[in-house]
Design a protein around this nucleic acid. Sequence first.
DNA 1: GAGCACACCCACACACCAC
DNA 2: GGTGGTGTGTGGGTGTGCT
Length: 617
Amino acid sequence: MSFHTIEYSAGMVSPSSNNQLALGNVQSGAAASHGIFTYDGGIPMLFFVPFNDPNRYEYKQKIISHGGIITDTEPNESTGNRIILLSSFNIRGQLCFKLSFIDDSIKNNGVCDLSNYKYQIPEVYDPSSISGQNKIIKINSEGDGAGQNDAAAFSNVISRNVRPPPMRTSRRFNDLKDEYILKQIRLNPRLRNSHKFFDGLATHDVLKGHTGNSIRSRYRNHLESRLAYVYKTDEDGALIKSADGKNIRESLENLPKTLKNRFTALEDFNLCTELIEYSRQKYYEDLESGAVEKDEDGKPKPFDLYQEFTAPVSFFTMMAKTYPSHSYHSWRDRYRKFVRQYGAQKYIDDYNRSIQNGETPEQMKNFTGKKAGLTRGFKELIGSSYNDNYRALPSNENARDDETIDEKIKQIRSSDYEGAAGNVGEIQEAEGGPNNDLEQVIESQSQPESQSQGQGGSVLESQSTSQMWSNFDIKYLPQGITLEDLFNKNFYKIAPSEISSKVETILNDIELSAPALLLKSFNEIGINDVFTAHLIMASSGDIVNMQVFIDKFLDLIPHLQEDQLYDGLQIEDTDGIWTNKLDSYLLSGSKQDMKKLQAIQSPHSIDARRLFLEKFA
DNA sequence: GAGCACACCCACACACCAC
DNA sequence: GGTGGTGTGTGGGTGTGCT
């Protein structure tokens, strides 16, 4: 039903003879059979109460129940519809009447003089336009002349002493506000996620009383699905007009980019592959020119896929040109904050593995921000199952949180120790990544295999084995170590829950072990040689203690920040596990130090440690 | 209890600047 | 030109209190 199709005659709405706007020929009393708010013939009067009016619902009921109609269409000056605007408060710039008109009319059982309920003439009101299209209640000029001087009529209104409802702005959204928001989004589609844009909208009169966040939330949670279309804009977000100067509608399929675009896994993959390809070409150029660094034998060092790559400006310029989804600065920043942290080849490996497993590769993440330390990065690397498995532990260990872990680290960390002993070994530099590392170790250190060591003993137990291991650099890991130092890519291929059992299997089979074989076995489950060296150093080569160390450390890892990795290795609360600090206590020979040591280590462990240090330190 | 309005958070894309 | 440091504010949420 369209209310606008009702033909209103001049007599329906006409000013009174005394120049006061009045409703003429409106049924009252006798018209009750049709309701109070009707014209002659029972035609209902049309009212509009703003959607945000706090009393809208109440008066909607009153109007309807007394024969009137409340429309959802605002009074429209240009179309000249015959709708009476009622409001709890004055609306600037519009001809508006008080709601008490309804109350009083109902009380009188007949329509009161509407002119008595008009709010003061708004400042922007143009009296000269009252006889034209700008009238809200269109007065037919063929009437009794009211249209000729409605302004004077309004100015002569004697306001009734009716206290308007308190000025109150509802903070609820309504259709009007919603449409306004949608309109602004359509005009500025690139800004549809921008906080600042919505902050700006909050200053618009229509949306006064709402915060930018609130409007943004309203759009994201309720209005986005109603957007339907936007207006076409250029790359800078400026509206593109049609030949006749109108905005051009654009379907949502062609939504313009927002201000920032998240890097996808594919983009990360492209960045890594391009970076490695660029570096490889550079390497071969350097090889030809003799600029490649040489090893001890004077041979050019091989191209290392797992090295930390660097790239010049030209590389990022090329990236921005080849992949225009991100700017030069964005590609460079992505490289600086993500690729360098993650490792280009490592990401490619992970990406390919995901594809092979039928999984969707994930982009690099959690490498920025204050809290983006090792914990989250590590979880991302090894998968969420690690945490799940960890939490599923039956012991009370699973109740630990970061805070208690920090406490634990504090307990096992000696604040006055760092660097004091001075014999912390350097990480054994390995050319060509973990695999090359292994090959080198095997080549340089492989010896005839030892006789069986038996279970539960030391990998260094026999004289012959000790001699073999004496060629291997057994030392603690230094400060500043990274995950990449500890684990190679094989580590991330194994389910976290299986690591410990695989370590156990290897250690149980240690009877067949030579140094090279142990290193190789550990390499195959992702443990780098330098970490194996640390394990042996910390456990005095004791198989059981090696297992204990691994288990404790794996438990600790998910709760360590990047700069806490070294601290996590300093397990000082377990009999049979040693650190540089405990060694220094032992070597100092002072009573005080020995007392501290005996609080942790059993006499047997202390004796075994003395022997171990004599042979290997 | 559900829906809503709003505050607040955080990772990070993008940019600028200093050295 | 290369690099590191850092600021701004977007994008994508979650939390909380009110209706």
